[in-house]
Design a binder for these strands. Sequence first.
DNA 1: GATTTTATGTCAGCCTTGTTGACTTTCCAA
DNA 2: TTGGAAAGTCAACAAGGCTGACATAAAATC
Lengths: 168, 168
Amino acid sequence: MAEGGSAQSGESLLFLTDEQLRKGIEAMFFAYRGFTADPDRILENYSYGRAHHRAIHFIHRSPGTTVNNLMSILGVTKQSLNRVLRTLIEDGLVESRVGPRDKRERHLYLTEAGATLEQELSDAQRARMRAAYRAAGPEAVAGFRQVLEAMMDPEQRRHYAALKDAGS
Amino acid sequence: MAEGGSAQSGESLLFLTDEQLRKGIEAMFFAYRGFTADPDRILENYSYGRAHHRAIHFIHRSPGTTVNNLMSILGVTKQSLNRVLRTLIEDGLVESRVGPRDKRERHLYLTEAGATLEQELSDAQRARMRAAYRAAGPEAVAGFRQVLEAMMDPEQRRHYAALKDAGS
DNA sequence: GATTTTATGTCAGCCTTGTTGACTTTCCAA
DNA sequence: TTGGAAAGTCAACAAGGCTGACATAAAATC
């Protein structure tokens, strides 16, 4: 399928060819493997999986978040999430407190042990990210983030943006 | 913390802060969901999964590839790959030919039906990629690719590069 | 020619992590 | 007060990873 459409008024649209798009697709595939490789290795030692990592990450980012909210951020069913949370709670990495206002809700927090594992995982993941950022340079990083953001579904982008400024 | 992602004279390293790295990590997470969303929807109609998509993609990219080669590109075991290939062959989407030189090898090709599904899947995935590329612009796309490439493990980068120029 | 290595396929069984369905508890509104 | 919705839990199933063991055929080596 050719690109066609708009005229090339000065600005070349060569970066929109199927060939370029395919390269981008394959880059995403291979890069995502690298992206998860380091945490995956660490998680093996604890017999946890990626799902545990994701839960830990976002509980760390939004302490006190509810199961419902976490569900919608992670894009999994509450049953999937519940299984992961149950093991994390049993193992003393996550604490679940009954909601003060609405007792149906459970508010989630990392324990000290949970925060320690979170640190170990994110240190590893950031190290790779840092190396990649440094190798590519600040302009490339800005472009990287722009394209990724444009690739998200609107709902994902909402979640992303909601987290975006939380720590500033 | 201020946002400015652009480079400052004197080589500011603000783009390497933990905060910036964390945003990149979350962007990867949310973007990857968007990246796979459209093909996933299509695959449901055929009761296939992402594993089938990956196999189909790389067989399309490298017609005649062997099982062994595909295994190493996809980074899965032969048992995992075999399960997927078996169903694709049974369903007439993939053809497996005994190697002409080395008769131990099986060379994999898409059938016409396989090529049709490949087209449907990659059209959907490219459409999203094209929209993201167009929204972000050529400079951003260049940066996007640079960072992703830097994020890969060396072996993944080898595979990526080997595919890179094949179709040009 | 005999032996070893390589490429592939298959069976069995396990794990993680998705899913749906059924259920309880809690809250809220008619 | 009663019925529905919302939050969370339990049970069972499926996809797709994994390992291990074993079979076959062909290639490579001794």
